[in-house]
Each structure stands twice: as C-alpha cells, then as structure tokens.
Amino acid sequence: MPNRILEVSGRAVPVRGNDIDTDRIIPARFLRCVTFDGLGQHAFADDRAQRRAQGGLHPFDDPRFAGASILLANANFGCGSSREHAPQALARWGIRAIVAVSYSEIFHGNCVAIGVPAVRVSQLDSERLQDLAERAPTLTFTVDLERLEVRASDGTSVPCQLAEGPRRQFLSGSWDALGELLEGLPAVRARAAQLPYLRGFA
C-alpha cells in the first residue's frame, strides 16, 4: 500500500500550552476561502504576531525550528472549532506528525483523515520532549507507530499511545477512509432501508 505510514521522522518544534484551540491554530478570517491552498503560512498567525510584538519569537518563526516536521504540544490540543483548516494549515506548514498529551476528538479525527498521525504521551513526557527539542533543536525525532514510541536521536525514548483503529489505518494505508466506506455503500443502503425515520415509522 503506497499510503502506509509506519513512522514519521524529522526535527521537532515545541508549541507549549494546554487547550490551544483551532482559532489560534488558524484564525477564522483565513477560513474565507474555497481551497486549503496557502493556509500553511497563516498557521498560528495571531500568536506569532503577538509574540513578535512582545519582542519574542513564536516557535513557528524561530529559525532553530525551521523545517521541523513533528509538532510537540501539550493537553487538549486542537480544541474548539471543527475546522479541518487547522490540521491542513499545520500540514501545509510542514508538520507530518503531532505528539501531545491529548487532543480534541474532532481535531484528532481530522488529522487521521489527512494522514497526520497524532499520538499521545504523558504530561511529563510531553514536557520532557519539548525541553529536549528546545535544548537540541537539531535532533531527529521519530514517531514510531509500530512500536508506539517516540524516540530522539540522542537515545531518548518514551512510550506513546494511539487508538487501535487509527493505528491500523496508518499501518495499513487506509487512513483515508473513503475507499472502504464506498465499498460498504450497498450495506449503507440496506441499513438505511431499515431505519424507522426513513420508513415513515411504519
């Protein structure tokens, strides 16, 4: 299967904070569009501008993390709006996997659907990995979906979790569910024919 994702390797960018919502990942004014093209440059637009205004640098602007492909976040990442524009913006910025303590359900589903594994680690490990990436931004991190661990090229290794359904989807290359759903279309029609509200409750 050409779409199998067994692991993702690359440098990591830490974005700290719990409850980072999808309005922060991609502010609503950038949703006035009919394609996802070009969203990458607007990822975290307002957070980045605010950090610059305060004389600092958001990790997405920090040259040490340029070219990073693994996002290290904390708890409840991607909460709020269901906008797929959020993971699309991250992916178009260059993110190919996410490591966090937890995710909003909808954001996580969107990540799976676009082929971006988003794995869970403990609170302590999420902070350890963020500290490590900050100390040594040139390290290569690997999110290994077969062994369910996140490794760094300095030898650090922590266990991670991913629900068995999405994990199998990545490992088998079926994370884009549409193909399998289409195969089930005859069964969908059969199910619909039995639903009381589609039969006039007869």
């Binding site: 906008r83 797929e84 909808i106 589903g109 969107n110 659907a113 549409l178 759903l181 089930g184 619909a192």
Partner: peptide, 23 residues
C-alpha cells in the same frame, strides 16, 4: 449529533456514512 472535518464531510456526501469509534 457531532461535528466533523471537511474530509469527513466528503465521506458523508459520498457514502452517507463515517468511519468512527464509539465514545
């Protein structure tokens, strides 16, 4: 009733169904 992303909007349009795990 629950929110979905745009890839899943596509899935529902094409198949009136979604791939989901139980909550």
């Amino acid at each position: 009733a629950f929110g979905i992303g745009t890839s899943q909007v596509r899935d529902v349009l094409a198949t009136q169904s979604l791939a989901l795990s139980r909550l």
